[in-house]
Design a protein around this nucleic acid. Structure first.
Length: 168
DNA sequence: GATGTCGACGTGG
DNA sequence: CCACGTCGACATC
């Protein structure tokens, strides 16, 4: 670990941690002690990108340039899931089943859900853009209210069951 | 239609 | 073992 830093936002203080490879974790306000350490120039640069990205997203704008993300902490399966997740564009959504199909394990949707919950970098690795099938909200380990807020910021409107029936 | 139960998957406790 | 951020199939009213 190369260091830990904080980001002050209108929503509270986020905590970040960096490895030699890039950003390796991000915590919502209140989920970790706001400690900070001295860091290298390299990490300071990454942290500027992280802060900027977070601010943009909280302002309802697309993320812009991301710092390198170090997902090597997860198991191979989790890394596959997280990588598939990062490919979901801003303002778009996918279901747990979709992700399972993307990584070639159509029956592993439940495991995908578990992997989403283990995501070390929420928001930047957009776990909130993953909904249950048929546009239902699904769950969110760091608090459903965050998921709702983030979706709203991206202009995503949840389909309603009765609407789907009308279309079909 | 609206419910209820079942099995499949990977990981951590 | 079990519990999870799931899902579709099938069974039954």
């Amino acid at each position: 670990m190369q260091g830990t830093l904080q980001i002050q936002t209108s929503e509270g203080t986020f905590c970040t941690a960096y490895s030699a490879r890039g950003l390796c974790s991000l915590n919502f306000p209140g989920r970790a002690k706001p400690t900070a350490t001295e860091v290298s120039q390299q990490v300071q640069h990454w942290h500027r990108l992280t802060s900027k990205t977070l601010e943009r997203m909280l302002a309802g704008k697309p993320p812009g340039e991301l710092p390198p993300l170090d997902l090597s902490a997860g198991t191979p399966f989790q890394q596959e899931v997280w990588q598939a997740m990062s490919k979901i564009a801003w303002g778009c959504t996918a279901s747990y089943g979709d992700l399972a199909r993307d990584i070639g394990r159509p029956a592993a949707m439940r495991a995908v859900g578990a992997a989403c919950g283990a995501n070390p970098i929420p928001v930047l690795v957009p776990c909130h853009r993953v909904l249950a099938a048929h546009g239902k909200l699904g769950g969110f380990s760091s608090g459903l209210d965050w998921k709702i807020k983030l979706l709203a910021l991206e202009g995503i409107v949840l389909p309603i069951a009765s609407e789907r029936l009308a279309v079909a």
